[in-house]
């Protein structure tokens, strides 16, 4: 990108203090493979931002570019209002990160590992180091294992230690790559509540995940990535609203039901023996669930069960990313 193009047309990135992360045309090529392709991402401050995408869709590469580990082939990155990676040394102390799983020196204790990482942070005050390490360990429930070598940690403990490392200093932005990976249900709940409490304190959290349920539970915003391209982003409600309504009918009269549904402008399909699902082709003008039931019953279809599925993020995800599409179609 030439300096001339910067100055003209586009608004300056720096003049957006209300965004925690912003990318413009972010692209990374490895040889001929586009790992990330023209990504325009906007993460508002204070958001818990879910970064969704199937494996290999470019989530981790994007996160690495946000942290200055990988330099973009094209496009721009702005983190906390500062240009990356030019201002990396000034930005990263304000960012906590967990990238592609935790990684530690197995021959050092958990506490020593955190000391080491905090020492690597140029701006971390040495005076409060011990205190901060201790409270970070307490926050993730590892105070009892502080002096154990990481070698002896379980995967879940390492994951917690990774979170502790991200919490060593007060952060304005947390970038967490699959933070609940390897945690038991109890640990997962703890991490979720940790993220919520951090968000309440005003920290922006950028969470990548392939677990939609998780994102639905904790996120306010989300973006979806497919083969390096952004397919949707916005608040959770915006994303859900974009999903198409759907009904599910349990009946022995499958073909008859399908005909009725088609008459109502839905596109039915047989999902299992005795079950027909149908979704509307468009968001507007879809019949209300009670109308559908009335039409079915009126046509003499033996309705044994009926559900009007609330639009879920998962459906939206499936629609947009093509993952898990019904092969019977």
């Amino acid at each position: 990108m030439s300096p001339a193009a910067e100055g003209a047309g586009k608004p300056s990135l720096a003049a957006s203090p209300e965004t925690a992360v912003r990318t413009e045309g972010l692209t990374k090529r490895f040889g001929r493979h586009h790992a990330v392709d023209g990504l325009d991402l906007t993460v508002p401050r204070g958001a818990v931002f879910g970064f969704l995408g199937p494996n290999g869709s470019g989530k981790t590469t994007t996160i690495r570019m946000l942290l200055g580990l990988v330099s973009p082939t094209a496009g721009r990155v702005e983190v906390l209002g500062e240009e990356m990676p030019a201002r990396l040394m000034g930005v990263l102390p304000r960012v906590g990160a967990l990238v592609e799983g935790p990684a530690f020196y197995p021959f050092l204790s958990g506490e020593a590992n955190l000391h080491r990482l905090d020492t690597a942070d140029l701006r971390a005050p040495v005076r409060t180091r011990g205190e901060r390490v201790k409270s970070a360990l307490e926050r993730v429930g590892l105070e009892h294992a502080a002096h154990k070598r990481v070698h002896a940690y379980s995967l879940g403990m390492k994951q917690r230690l990774g979170l502790a490392a991200a919490l060593l200093a007060p952060r304005e932005l947390l970038v967490l790559d699959e933070p609940t990976n390897g945690l038991d249900p109890q640990g997962t709940r703890e991490v979720r509540s940790l993220i919520r409490s951090l968000a309440q304190d005003g920290t922006t959290v950028f969470v990548s995940s392939h677990l939609l349920a998780e994102v639905e539970q904790i996120c306010t915003h989300a973006a979806m990535l497919r083969t390096g391209k952004l397919v949707a982003q916005g608040t959770l409600d915006e994303l859900r609203g974009a999903a198409l309504p759907r009904v599910e009918v349990r009946t022995p009269d499958e073909s008859q039901a399908a005909e009725v549904l088609r008459g109502l402008g839905l596109s039915p399909e047989r999902s299992a023996p005795g079950t027909v699902v149908a979704s509307s082709a468009a968001n507007d003008g879809a019949p209300a669930p009670e109308e559908v039931v009335a039409a079915l019953v009126g046509a003499g279809v033996r309705v044994r069960g009926f559900a009007a599925a609330a639009a879920s993020l998962e459906e939206r995800f499936v629609e947009l990313t093509g993952e898990g599409f019904d092969v019977a179609q």
Binding site: A97, V99, E100, A103, L122
Partner: peptide, 12 residues
């Protein structure tokens, strides 16, 4: 070890 990315993100 993978610690390189954490040292650089610290940022060292």
């Amino acid at each position: 070890l993978g610690t390189l990315r954490y040292l650089l993100a610290a940022p060292a």
